[in-house]
Every structure is written in C-alpha cells, then in structure tokens.
C-alpha cells in the first residue's frame, strides 16, 4: 500500500519543488511580463519567455507535420501489405530506433541536415526546420510502433466483412481499419507530441537557440526546454529562479496536453 503511493508521492514532490522555486518569481515579475515580453536578458534583469513559448510550439508543430504522416503511412503499409516474416525483422528495427539516444539524432541533424538546409534553402541551417525534421524522425518509431499495434489489433473479421461487401483493400483500410484503430493511433500521436515538446538536448543541438521571434521556418529559435538546459549550468539567484519558472510553464503546457489527450481517449471510449 505504501509502495503503491510512491508514484503519486513522486509527482507531488516534483510539482511542489518546481513550483516552490519558480512560482514566486513569476509573481514578482508579473505573469504578463513573464509570458508575453520578448526580451530575455537575464544580466539586465529582463525575463520574457514569449520567444521560447513560440519556439516550442513551432518546433512541435513541425515535428508533428513531419512525423505523423510518415509514421502513419509506414504503419498502415507495414501492417497491411507486408508479409508476417518481414514484419518480424522490421518491427524490432523500429523498436531499436526508438531506443537510440536523442543526442545521437541531434548530432546527425548538426552534421548532415543543417548543412543541407544552409546550402539549398538558405538561412543559418540550425533552424525551426532542422529541429522539426529531426524531432519528426525521432517520434517516428513511437508513432509507428503504437499505430502498428493498434492496426494489428483490429479483428480480421472486420476486414473480411468489408471485402465481402465488395470494398477494395484501400477502401477497407481507410473506411474500416483506420477508424477501428483510431484511439490507439491517437494515443501514439500524443505520446510522440509529448516527446517532441519535452525533448531538450537534440533540440539544443539543431535549433540554433537564438532568442527572438522567428519569421520563417529557416530562422533559428530557442525552445523552453533549451532555455532551461542552456543556462542552468551557470545561473544563480534570480536567473536560476527564472529557469525554474520556465519549467513551471513547460509543466503546465505538458499537463494541459496530457489532460486533453486523456479526455479525448476517454470520450471515445464512452461513445463506443
């Protein structure tokens, strides 16, 4: 019984300590100044995190745009058109990729992707686009393997029913299989989303980390997570509190996302 309460105790501890360090600071600076000001100059006592909020949202959106279509297409193709024996090697490979440390993905972004973007599309290379693509690739295995599992879980009788009514394989997939697997697919996407918005080290390596509002996908940008990790090493006093306050904002965004995800899944469960 006491053991069973460990998880909730840990959650409370984390939230408590992050808030204790961060919240007083937010009230001292003022919520609107902290959230909506675009000036982040800790040395001059200016603490506005709006560019980082924008950065996090842009990069996450980009990652979704890259990762979800690819992941879904891959999942549908692999689970519907590939023989069982081939899946036996492909699925473990995908799971291996999910286990590769994020810093490795970040490094490949720096060494391969950023130079390509700089050369062919312009800008500094380290940019929203680079971060989106790298994060998109990073969440691919997650989105894919959960989607494959939920597509595989759709009973074969559904497919047979659709075929018996004269549907083509593709019609069966998009009218029967995908709707039936929807809640699993959504869970996969949301997990991927959480991983993208929370990712830190890979993003630091490829996003460029400039504190300004971006004008195009080729601009450099700094995310909330990067802001914390970049300055945590040397920050003291007010500055350190500002980073914890950034953590509070990040925590609230994540909690909101989780809440939306959980209610979405629960409502779907009720409808059935």
């Amino acid at each position: 019984m006491a053991i069973a309460l460990s998880a909730i105790t840990m959650l409370v501890l984390i939230v408590l300590f992050i808030i204790k360090e961060g919240l007083p600071f937010i009230f001292k600076i003022g919520i609107t100044d902290f959230l909506l000001s675009t000036d982040w100059e800790p040395a001059a006592g200016k603490y506005g995190i709006f560019p980082m909020i924008a950065g996090s949202l842009w990069v996450t959106l980009g990652a979704i745009l890259v990762g979800v279509p690819l992941g879904l297409a891959g999942a549908v193709f692999l689970s519907e058109f590939i023989p069982q024996w081939a899946m036996k090697t492909i699925k473990p490979t995908i799971e291996l990729l999910a286990g590769i440390p994020s810093v490795v993905y970040g490094f490949i972004g720096v060494m391969v992707l950023a130079p390509l973007i700089r050369e062919y599309l312009g800008g500094p290379g380290l940019s929203i686009m680079a971060a989106s693509i790298i994060l998109g690739i990073m969440i691919l295995p997650t989105v894919m393997s959960i989607s494959i599992d939920s597509i595989k879980a759709v009973p074969n009788s559904y497919r047979e029913g659709a075929f018996a009514l004269g549907a083509t394989h593709w019609q069966t997939i998009h009218m029967v299989v995908i709707p039936a697997a929807r809640s699993g697919i959504i869970a996969g996407i949301i997990l991927g989303l959480g991983r993208a918005i929370g990712e830190t080290m890979a993003v630091i390596m490829v996003a460029g980390n400039a504190v300004k509002l971006p004008n195009s996908p080729l601009d450099s940008v700094r995310t909330l997570t990067a802001n914390i990790a970049l300055e945590m090493g040397y920050a003291t006093g007010m500055h350190r509190q500002a980073l914890f306050a950034t953590g509070v904002v990040l925590l609230i965004i994540i909690m909101l996302l989780n809440y939306i995800a959980m209610t979405a899944i629960r409502d779907r469960g009720k409808k059935k």
């Binding site: 840990m10 300590f17 929370g198 980073l243 994540i254 996302l257």
Partner: peptide, 25 residues
C-alpha cells in the same frame, strides 16, 4: 485512480523537468 493518474502524469513529464527537480531536491 489517484495512483494511476500520478503514474500517467509522471510518464508525461519531460526529462529536463526531472533534471531541474533532481538538481534542486
């Protein structure tokens, strides 16, 4: 339900927050 909620929330927390917490705690 509270225990499951705690575990679910904990699962969604980004690693940098764990880093911040571990540092301060």
């Amino acid at each position: 339900r509270i225990i499951r909620f705690g575990a679910d929330c904990l699962a969604g927390i980004p690693s940098i927050i764990f880093g911040l917490f571990g540092f301060i705690f």
